[in-house]
């Protein structure tokens, strides 16, 4: 590596900010919460910069931390730190972020949201983050084989619920852009 912690963090921030923001915005209805997820995740990375892996695995490591931050938020923790004030203002000024669609009320969206949270996140990591099972394994801290089994079950549950809802699902569980 060779870089000092400051330089390493700056490089990490530059390369990972956008995917991490996207990850957070896709999971937080409120952009302010997404800003907090980004801030808290990078704060952990800064504290533990020696532990952050190199290159693309850094992004996976950050997603793993962001999962925990999101879990804290879902447990009711909300804090809009002063340090995110400028970022929140920037997000609010962005037409793209300010006009993000709300919940998808299509049948597919409703069935997707009815899935257990673990299933949803697993399918989202594939379809939204376009991660392979081995990459997801790094995010979740488990093995690729475990991920494959869990993915199979999640997709089966999703397909079953789609069928129960009368949705033709031959393509609905296809994962655009995924490496499955």
């Amino acid at each position: 590596m060779g870089a000092d912690p400051e330089r390493r963090f700056e490089e990490l921030y530059a390369s990972s900010y956008r995917p991490l923001l996207g990850y957070a915005l896709r999971r937080c209805p409120d952009p302010d919460d997404a800003a907090d997820v980004v801030a808290e995740t990078f704060m952990v990375a800064w504290r533990r910069i020696e532990e952050v892996p190199q290159e693309d695995e850094a992004r996976l490591w950050l997603f793993g931390v962001a999962r925990k931050v999101l879990a804290n938020q879902r447990r009711g923790e909300r804090r809009h730190e002063q340090r995110t004030a400028a970022l929140r203002a920037q997000l609010a000024a962005s037409p793209l972020v300010a006009e993000l669609p709300g919940e998808d009320f299509s049948q597919l969206g409703q069935v997707f949201r009815s899935l257990p949270e673990d299933d949803r996140e697993l399918l989202a990591l594939v379809a939204w983050e376009r991660l392979s099972p081995s990459e997801i394994a790094k995010v979740l801290g488990t093995s690729a084989n475990v991920v494959r089994v869990r993915l199979y079950r999640a997709r089966s549950r999703f397909a079953r619920r789609l069928a129960e809802a009368g949705v033709r699902h031959s393509r609905a569980v296809a994962f655009e852009g995924s490496r499955l």
Binding site: Y17, L21, L25, L91, P95, L96, V97, L108, A174, F175
Partner: peptide, 20 residues
């Protein structure tokens, strides 16, 4: 429609936005 279409924002969209 696919699961990917349920994403509220895509990284590619953020590419062209100052917020991203």
């Amino acid at each position: 429609m696919k699961i990917a279409d349920l994403a509220r924002v895509r990284d590619e969209d953020l590419d062209g936005d100052v917020a991203g």
